[in-house]
Design a protein around this nucleic acid. Sequence first.
DNA 1: TATTATACATAGCAATTCTAGGTATGTCAA
DNA 2: TTGACATACCTAGAATTGCTATGTATAATA
Lengths: 113, 113
Amino acid sequence: MKKKQNIEHTQLLVLSLLSGEDMYGYQMIVELARRSDHTFEMKEGTLYPVLHGLEKNGYVEAYQQEAPTGRMRKYYHLTRKGGAMLRTEAEAWQSYAGAVNAVLRSSPGLNMA
Amino acid sequence: MKKKQNIEHTQLLVLSLLSGEDMYGYQMIVELARRSDHTFEMKEGTLYPVLHGLEKNGYVEAYQQEAPTGRMRKYYHLTRKGGAMLRTEAEAWQSYAGAVNAVLRSSPGLNMA
DNA sequence: TATTATACATAGCAATTCTAGGTATGTCAA
DNA sequence: TTGACATACCTAGAATTGCTATGTATAATA
């Protein structure tokens, strides 16, 4: 039985990537792997539906642009609304992670530095 | 439309609680809320199925014990196997959280201390 | 006596990610 | 030139997981 990777908070990670520069889907997958030291290897089947959802809700805007190679790429740009959502979700993440760590720290079975 | 709370890593949190002392279901819900400063309000519909799964896999053992009030409680005890799983999952959490934070830190749209 | 807290349980819904498949072009080595 | 691999996009359906809603029952309290 194959283990499922389960990257949660996909939306937060995508918004975060786009806050630096406009990116296209494939690039996000590569960048996310790089910045997370390959902890995250997001699947296309995960990313593309999320991107379409973000666009539908006005958090990102898409535009086509030709790559130097001649291939078409679909770039995504973070909107003002998307930036606000990013800050909201980042705060939620901080709160969530802090709470998990608080619970783990209270566990004698672990050696939490 | 009601917002879903979505406590992920439920299993890790439960194992962590049980590494301190044996607990019964209702107590875990109360304790988890307390230790997480009420960030986590786990639902019974979430907890009980998870407990049954942990028991089935040998991570915890259950036993009945009468409370001072006269009511029956079902206590859960962390097994050696459960302790090992706790350490494994805690490590996975550290790695996961570290990767998310690394990505967020690389985002100019956020003010990550 | 009615409400709230305690205490356990499950069926089915909803949300999310993955698997698995499809389409197509560019690059590079054999 | 052909075959493999990387690039680049997309979606349907499966699997997982937590939540909603509901049920049962007892003890405490207003």
